[in-house]
Computed example of a mutant assay.
Amino acid sequence: MNEYSWPVDGERLAERASARWTITVTALPEGSTVTGHVIGRQPFGVFVEIAGVPDVVGLAEITAMPHGVPLPLVGTVVRGTVIGHTPHNHQIRLRLVDQD
């Protein structure tokens, strides 16, 4: 298995995230604490499916992870804080604070 991966069904997930963007931004304002699991990994960070909010794509860039902590594997449960919204690709920016 390749150490890096895109989320399964990534294109459809992106379409659904786009359709729900307004609802997502309202449900997850900056400062919100979230839990989810890693659904994809890239050298720059991880994609996270956020629990309790359907069709959301969270992105935790490597610069927004705890110092010295390795990039979490797909399936790892992570916790973090919403640090922003990126409307051009309908992603929630996350700062990870913990992982199981």
Results as ranks from 00 to 15, higher is better:
27 A>C: 01
27 A>G: 02
28 L>M: 07
28 L>S: 10
28 L>R: 02
29 P>A: 09
29 P>M: 06
30 E>Q: 08
30 E>K: 05
30 E>A: 09
30 E>P: 03
30 E>W: 00
30 E>G: 06
32 S>E: 12
32 S>F: 00
32 S>Q: 08
33 T>W: 01
33 T>S: 08
33 T>E: 12
33 T>F: 07
34 V>A: 07
34 V>D: 06
34 V>M: 02
34 V>L: 04
34 V>N: 03
34 V>G: 02
35 T>S: 05
35 T>N: 03
36 G>Y: 09
36 G>M: 04
36 G>E: 04
36 G>W: 10
36 G>A: 05
37 H>A: 05
38 V>A: 10
38 V>N: 03
38 V>M: 03
38 V>P: 00
40 G>L: 10
40 G>N: 02
41 R>Q: 10
41 R>I: 09
41 R>F: 05
42 Q>W: 00
43 P>L: 11
43 P>M: 07
43 P>I: 04
43 P>C: 11
43 P>N: 08
43 P>F: 14
44 F>K: 05
45 G>H: 00
45 G>D: 01
45 G>E: 01
46 V>L: 12
46 V>A: 15
46 V>R: 02
46 V>N: 05
47 F>V: 02
47 F>P: 00
48 V>P: 01
48 V>R: 13
48 V>A: 12
48 V>Y: 14
50 I>L: 14
51 A>C: 06
51 A>Y: 10
52 G>I: 01
53 V>N: 14
53 V>H: 13
53 V>E: 15
53 V>D: 15
54 P>R: 15
54 P>D: 13
54 P>H: 10
54 P>E: 14
55 D>L: 01
55 D>S: 14
55 D>F: 02
55 D>C: 04
56 V>K: 08
56 V>W: 14
56 V>N: 13
57 V>E: 15
57 V>N: 14
57 V>C: 11
58 G>R: 10
58 G>S: 07
58 G>D: 13
59 L>G: 09
59 L>F: 12
60 A>I: 05
60 A>R: 04
60 A>S: 14
61 E>Q: 11
61 E>L: 09
61 E>K: 07
61 E>M: 12
61 E>W: 15
61 E>I: 03
62 I>P: 00
62 I>W: 13
62 I>Q: 04
63 T>S: 14
64 A>T: 07
64 A>C: 09
65 M>R: 09
65 M>L: 15
65 M>W: 02
65 M>S: 09
65 M>F: 12
65 M>G: 10
